[in-house]
């Protein structure tokens, strides 16, 4: 795996963890039973990120409003550093995300992927499909009627 592929892979799992439902991530994490020794480089911290939109969807950026985000940086005993940036205010979720990010950079990556990331990705995919399927059932065909104006 080259550098770009590794970066993209990490970007994918970090994004997945950021959006994962807190309770599902917590359940999968405790089922997997990982409890890696670690110290915090940055203790879990709640904050906000200003979300930007663009004028007319594609023009100049403007500030739409903030969203809550919690972040954390953890260091494993072997020195590997993991970062967690997750949506919402759940500190435990940020810690779990940071630890998973760290473990994914070690030789336990494939078992962590199988135990946590793959199930999360499948569930997210399924939820998106159900939502899209329900929306698709409301697709409408409008017909323009000719008005009898004589």
């Amino acid at each position: 795996m080259n550098d770009t592929a590794r970066k993209n892979d990490r970007k994918t799992w970090m994004s997945l963890l950021a959006k994962a439902p807190s309770d599902r991530l917590a359940a999968l994490w405790s089922e997997a039973g990982y409890a890696p020794e670690h110290s915090f480089l940055r203790a879990p911290e709640q904050g906000a990120v200003m979300v930007q939109g663009r004028t007319g969807a594609t023009g100049a950026p403007f500030n739409l409003g903030e969203m809550t985000v919690t972040r954390c940086a953890a260091k494993l005993a072997d020195g590997t550093v993991g970062h967690g940036y997750v949506q919402g205010r759940d500190k435990a979720k940020a810690v779990t995300a940071a630890l998973i990010d760290a473990l994914m950079q070690t030789d336990r990556a494939s078992e962590v992927r199988a135990a946590i990331l793959t199930p999360l990705a499948c569930e997210a995919q399924r939820a998106a499909e159900v939502k899209a399927a329900k929306a698709a059932a409301t697709k409408v065909e409008f017909f323009t009627l000719v008005r009898g104006e004589d």
């Binding site: 911290e45 709640q46 904050g47 906000a48 990120v49 200003m50 979300v51 930007q52 939109g53 663009r54 950026p61 500030n63 903030e66 969203m67 809550t68 985000v69 972040r71 940036y85």
Partner: peptide, 9 residues
Amino acid sequence: LPRFGSSRP
């Protein structure tokens, strides 16, 4: 809340 930064648009 401390602000961590701005998102991409």
